[in-house]
Structure formats: C-alpha cells, structure tokens
Design a binder for these strands. Structure first.
Lengths: 343, 343
DNA sequence: GTGAAAGCGCTAACAT
DNA sequence: ATGTTAGCGCTTTCAC
C-alpha cells in the first residue's frame, strides 16, 4: 500500500503538500495539485484511516444496535441510517442485541472499544436504563431510536405513539364503529407503553365510549428473539377467543401489525369478514400489501424520517457535544394512517 | 482516554510490559500482570484500535454488501454473519447496494478505503463481473454469498439451486401430482438461473414428463429495489392468468417464495383450494408460518449455514491469503424441504 | 522479565 | 506556497 511519502517522492513535492492536496487545504499550486493527483491515480493510493483516525480521534464509523435484525421494522431503519451516514462519509457498524439486555451492553461496549464516533441505540426494553444513564456521561454521543427511556435526559427519536393511539380511536369512531377493542401486546418497550397510555388517556376523557382493552399473553422473557412470531400468534389466539366467546367488538385496534395480522388470520379461518363483521386497524405498517390477502389499514411510522432524524441529531452531537441535553433532541414523529381494506 | 503510557505510570512498569499484559504475551511476572490489570480497571482503559491497527495493518472489521436490506432473506444472512464475526472479535460494516451495480462498486470501494480485513459480497446480479474479477487480484479477501459468478475463480457459498430444483420436481411427482408448472421470475442472478437450469436439465432427462415452464414479466432494471413486491405481484398476475385461461397444472413449483405467495393470493381470491385444486411449492422459505393464512411448502435454504460458512472461508483467506483459489472454497449447500399445507 | 526506542502513516504547527 | 518535524498510541525488536 502506497503512503503519502510515496506520493511525495513520485510527485516531487513534500509530504506536507501531499497532505494539503488530499485534504483540500488552502494554498496549493495548481501545478502541485496536478502532480499529486497524478501520483494518486498512478499508485491507486488510499488514505490509511488508522493513521488519520489516530490524529483526528475519529473512526468515521457509527454503531447501530438493534434488538433484532429479523423483525422487518429494524432493517427499515437500518437502511435509512446507512444511507444517511453515507452522505456524511460515515459507515455503520451493525449489531443485534437479540433482545438480550446483557448482549445489548456487550455490543455497546464493543462499539466503544472500536472508537465509534457515535451510537444509535434501539433499546430492547428499558432494562438497561441505568447502564444507558452511565453512557450519557461518556463522551461518545448516543441517540435512542424508536424507544425512549422515561425520565432520562437522553436524546431520542420516537414515533408519537400516544397521539397515534388516540388518532386510531377517533378514526374508528368517526367511521361509525361504535365499539372498539384495543389489542395490546405484552408491554416490552415504551412504544407499546405509550400507545396503551394514549388509549387509557382517551378513555379517561371519554368515559361514555365503548372502548375495551384486551391483553395478550406476555412473551416469555427468555425468548424475545421470536417476538414477531409470538405476537402474530397472540393476535391469532386472542382473535379466536373473542370470536368463540362472541365478544367481538365492532372494530379492533391492534397495538401493532403483527398482532393485527394474527387477528386477521383468526377471522379468515372463522369466516369473519373484514371490515363487514369486524373492522381492523394496525399500527406500524410492516408488510407490503402484495403479501397480504387483504390490505390492512395501519399507521405508517415513517421509518425514513425517524432514521434520518436520528442520524441528524447524532451528527449534531458529534459536532457540538456541549448541546448534549438540549430538549430539541427529543423528537416525536407523527404516524400517518394508510387506509387499507379492513376499515 | 487513558493510554498504555498512563497504565505504565500507574502500575509502575514499562510500556512494553503493559503491552505484553494486554496481549497475553509470554513472560510477564504474576506481580506485574496484577498491577497492570489493576491499573486497567482503575482507568477504564480501552485499547486504541487505530494505533493497534496501524501496526497490525488490520481493522478487525469486515464489510458486508447486500443487494437490499428490506428483503428478509438478506437480514437473515446478515444476522448470522454478525454473530459469527463476533466470535472472531470482528465487526461487520453493513451496506446495501440497493440493486444498483454502480452503488455496489461504490460500496466496495468505500469498504476498501476503510481498510476492512475482508469482504462478503452478495452480488446484486452479474453485471459487475469484471470489476469483481479485478477485486480478486487485490489483497483484501472476498467471498461471494448466495450468488456466484460463472467461470470466475472467486470463493463462494451458495445454495445448491440446481439440485433443489430437481428435488422439487421429484417431490411433486412422487406426491402424485402429474403435471407441474414451474413459475420462474425474471432471471436476475445465478440463484434463479441455476434453479431454471436444474428444471431444464430434468426435463431433458425426462422428456415424457408434463413439466412446463412459465415466465413472469421481468422486473424493470431501474427498479430492482422493489424486487420483493414485484415478484409477489408477478406470482399473483401469473396465477390469475393461468386460472383464467384454465391452464392450471396439477402442481405449481415457484422459483421462490415471493412468487409462490403471490400465486397463493391469486388462488385464494379465485376460490382455488390448495392443495386440492392445485398444489404449491416454493423455494427459499421466507416468512414465519404465523404470518401466512396457509403454511406454504418450501425449501429452507439454511441461511445460518450459508452465513457461517461464508465467515469461515473469509477468515481462512484472511489467515492464509495464498489459498485464495482453492476449489475447497466453492461451497454449495443443500436445501431442506419443509412440508406445509400446500402440497 | 523488563525497559528503551524505533516506527507504523498521517495531520498540524511551524519554519522557510 | 512548500518543506520540516513532532507526535498520535501502539507493537515489536533488541539490549539489559
């Protein structure tokens, strides 16, 4: 591998000049620049980022820790993050905590050991709250994505889950569905919690309305890896149960699309028609409509915006560490209802 | 950030000794080791990988370039690769070519500029054949995954697609389905090509058998990003067409699960029963059965094995670059049939 | 077994 | 505008 020393020799200039050319520094003769660039082409030179990083104390890498890479929601975010980072000449080191708090810590520690310039964390739950609190004291900037920690001064980008929950209820009522059942998954993270809180808040303000809450069986803590499958089957089971007991409300609002699709499967099998017999609304649109037999009405979380905002904030923190806990770094992004065939 | 110099001062030993402790080198007194380790704990020391990498000429990162991170097949591989790399104390820099050959080259060049220790590439097609040929001459080891290039001495790990195609036909015939239609997607990569070749080879050897081949409309080259959605809808369209024209064979063997699920949707809508009216078999099992109204029979590609083999080979090439083009680095992994409810 | 010192490739400060 | 040089934090000889 050629070095700037080689370039200097070939171009017949000093290494300082070469460095100036490479970094577009002021004051280099057109002549020198040309010669150096020629040498670069000739030797297929590439900067040694170790050497550069050692001086600049940067790796031009950021770490992304997600709970699972198999749940399609997370790759969507990862995809955007990667693209945004590319624009900033940074790369993404991806790793998955597999829904294990210990692994989550391990992964973050590995990233720190790698001298990443920043970390975007999608927490698998709030079990690592105190560890994350400690992280905030360190110099490597951290942005939480998709889930936040209550009462922790950490920058975050999340969906506006409370509002989405209320919007969903209002939408269904507005459509004329006069009784609504909210199907909620085991509460694993603040996204779920916030949606439930939104529903409960709504109920408190509208005590006359027929809104019921149905809890699915919780996911065993040791097997969150199959969280997606679990929620699909819980939505299914709960659906069968409501149908069997003839307790089906006029509309079902599912806490997320996995539960909704499980519920849909139960309906299909029981010859319950959507939306004629029961309307169905999901949250956090996941699967392409081409995949589903009936396109599900659901809220789109705007993954692209969430991902790019996370990168934007992280970049800002990297450039201005002192602004670490400004409240402008708490962002909630509204979801948009996409009407399918089930409402 | 503390350095080994700090550790040396605190522990009261020399820099060399500290280095020896950190790297578990021979010959360090129990006493010295203890003192250094104490200092490490005290200061929360972390090695500076830039400095280490500069000397060792390693980054302990590998690059993974995939065509898309939204198609669930690729995250599955990425997940395994990440886990395997962790065991080897390496991290994965992920990036997506978004099915663009130019982007694919850009991404690889970026990785090289990052001094990655090796690259795992899932080619988006074979359009970059000559570029990849050039890559093989360089010192950074490269392993192709899931798709190979014909007649290129590049290490690869792929599924045994030809055999899978033949197995599928034999399985369906063995089940008593006496006419088979093979639904093939636009040929975009060697995985698709190999499956088709397997079918054609089988036909050549069994000219009497009723095996027909049906081509779906090709995906526009400029929009491979939505390849998954496209194939779902092509399977659907082709299904509707066969049903309308009453040309439905007794069994349909789809080139992949996306086409198969599209076809399934067409059947459901047309009240065609699976497998009573038509049997359906896919390849490269993608979605959890909890998601599907009817569990699809399909071949499991063993992503875990493919991913871990790719890492194993890459590691071997990193340790023994001279073995670059041994034929042991051409691996084809058999798929396993998972019987669902559609055959 | 341990310490001293060279040097990896680069940037930045300084001298010219 | 260009050249010279110190030094980033580490590993690795090579004396001792």
């Amino acid at each position: 591998m050629p070095t700037i020393k080689d370039l200097a020799r070939i171009a017949g200039v000093s290494i300082g000049t070469v460095s100036n050319v490479i970094n577009n520094k002021s004051s280099v003769t057109e002549e020198s620049r040309r010669k150096v660039e020629e040498a670069i082409r000739l030797t297929d030179y590439k900067v040694n980022l170790h050497a550069r990083g050692m001086i600049l104390k940067k790796s031009f890498n950021i770490g992304l820790v997600v709970p699972s890479i198999l749940d399609p929601f997370f790759p969507k975010l990862a995809d955007v993050i990667e693209q945004e980072c590319e624009k900033l000449d940074m790369n993404v080191i991806l790793s998955s905590s597999n829904y294990s708090p210990d692994r989550e810590i391990d992964k973050i520690e590995q990233m720190l050991a790698k001298n990443v310039d920043g970390i975007i964390l999608i927490p698998e739950s709030d079990r690592n709250r105190s560890y994350v609190a400690g992280l905030l004291e360190k110099e490597t900037p951290l942005v939480l994505l998709a889930r936040r920690y209550n009462d922790l001064r950490a920058p975050y980008v999340v969906a506006d889950n409370r509002k989405t929950a209320e919007d969903g209820i209002n939408y269904l009522l507005g459509k004329g569905y006069d009784s609504i059942g909210f199907l909620v998954s085991p509460l694993m993270n603040t996204a779920d919690e916030d949606r439930l809180a939104g529903i409960q808040n709504w109920k408190n303000n509208h005590s006359e309305a027929a809104v019921s809450i149905h809890y699915c069986a919780p996911l065993p803590v040791h097997d969150r890896k199959h969280s997606m499958e679990h929620q699909l089957s819980q939505g299914y089971e709960k659906g069968l149960e409501l149908i069997r007991d003839q307790r089906l409300p006029r509309a079902v609002f599912a806490n997320n699309d996995y539960i909704a699709l499980g519920f849909m499967k139960a309906c299909t099998e029981s010859s319950i028609r959507l939306p004629d017999d029961v309307a169905l609304l999901g949250v956090s649109r996941q699967f392409p409509k081409e995949l589903l037999s009936t396109e599900l009405s659901s809220f789109d979380p705007h993954s692209e915006i969430m991902g790019s905002e996370a990168v934007r904030i992280l970049k800002e923190l990297m450039d201005h560490p002192e602004r670490g806990d400004e409240s402008t770094h708490h962002i909630e992004i509204g979801m948009s209802l996409i009407e399918g065939m089930t409402t």
